[in-house]
Design a protein around this nucleic acid. Structure first.
Lengths: 245, 245
DNA sequence: CGCGAGTTTGAGAGAAGTCAAAGTGTGTGG
DNA sequence: CCACACACTTTGACTTCTCTCAAACTCGCG
């Protein structure tokens, strides 16, 4: 896997050194660049919005006014569980779409919080609806996006239900690399956009257990980890069950 | 909560004593009974299909040919994990829809297996697509169904990530009751359609741990459980964190 | 009536959680 | 530009809980 052979979208330095992706790898792309949109109609994207670190894109139970594409930066989505900071259920990378779950009941079901400086494209929900009524391809694209998120959520639940903690952590790292590759970056060298605490929450662990496991991976030479800079040296080993090691 | 005040759909005894629901509580209802369908067009439901206990409705990686509504009986959906029987990620009750996740990549992502005698309504995927292209309400309904499943899957993942095992089990039981109530039955007295092993798999536990927890609930007078017949006596206590007890 | 799968119960080992403290990195203010 | 403070991360010791292995028990079905 030669990284230079990949269709690298130029990571143009955004202000504050956000990671950014080209529209080409954005999940919104078929909406923004639909025939409808290109034939003189205005882009469905109403506005762009900036978020500071820790700022909320939307909160659980707020009305489902818009859907968003992450243009630069990272967010986490968490369900505001009874106690404390809530469970992180998803991490959003540039090109991901946020807010689709609002189609269920007209309100958002999660908090979406920026992990750093962010920029998102906003499409009003009613506009997406109208577009998809008018253009079957857009309707199909919305269904596909929803179904993809559903598949990812199911996979996440299945992973959490597997009791092999080390495999869960390893798969998380490898999967994150896979998502980076889909955006034109290296699948084995990247920076973790989120804190250990957030990762631990997402994986259903304590930060201490996560840290110990990561140290263990490093001791075996499977990863190299310094702060948030990560190198996956043995992806296959990371993703395999503990028993098969 | 007087059960008789609820919109009880008559549980007509199907052959082999399946539990059945009226079309009124079926998630497909807006598709089957859309204006399009009633205005002379044939019902989008192509056929009904019977399944014997243990029979597969569809398998993971099989082409996404149809979506299904459960008319009678129960199914489980499981991801065919590397080892053994796979992780159960969902239980389907009468009125639930199966197969929507196929819109992501054209193939099913889970195995759908009948837990007993079942009957399902089948709608070819292409027909649902055409209908939703033609009728915006159907398109919106498909989006709503997908989003609802997404919300449920996220909630399931969040629950799995919470480390409070007893709360997880309690919430599972209460949530099952909630789903029964939505179908016109009692939320506190019902029969578990699945084995302990399946429940344990769904919750990320061993059957032994599950069994011990259920025995504990019974000892405290929170449930009454005999075989698969269940009585929820203290739903509030079941759903509360261990710490708050 | 007896077999067998499923379920419950028991004892012991192992793994993750908790509490605590040291270490590291980051951002701010002087 | 440097120093300090704070949050985050890592490591350690100990506790608690679940898992594992094993056996007894129950229920449904042939």
């Amino acid at each position: 896997m030669d990284p230079s052979a990949l269709p690298v979208s130029q990571p143009a330095a955004h202000e504050a050194s956000c990671t950014q992706v080209a529209c080409g790898v954005c999940a919104f792309n078929p909406l923004c660049h639909s025939p409808t949109a290109s034939m003189g109609a205005p882009s469905p994207v109403e506005s762009r919005r900036r978020l500071a670190p820790g700022e909320c894109l939307y909160r659980a139970r707020s009305p489902h006014a818009s859907i968003y594409a992450v243009r630069a930066g990272f967010l986490k989505a968490s369900v505001p569980g009874a106690c404390g900071a809530g469970q992180v259920v998803r991490f959003l990378l540039p090109g991901d779409v946020a807010g689709l779950e609002g189609y269920a009941g007209g309100v958002h079901e999660t908090d979406a919080v920026a992990l750093g400086d962010c920029e998102v494209c906003e499409i009003p929900a009613y506009r997406a609806e109208i577009l998809s009524d008018f253009n079957p391809r857009i309707g199909a694209q919305l269904r596909r996006l929803l179904a993809q998120e559903l598949v990812a959520a199911r996979a996440s639940a299945a992973s959490l239900a597997s009791r092999d903690v080390h495999e869960r952590i390893g798969r998380f790292l490898v999967d994150l690399g896979r998502r980076w590759r889909g955006r034109g970056y290296s699948a084995t060298r990247f920076r973790l956009p989120m804190s250990r605490r957030d990762i631990a929450s997402y994986l259903g662990l304590t930060p201490e257990t996560l840290s110990r496991a990561l140290s263990g991976f490093q001791a075996r030479g499977w990863i190299r980890l310094k702060g948030r800079e990560l190198d996956l040296l043995e992806p296959a080993a990371l993703a395999s069950p503990t028993g098969a090691r």
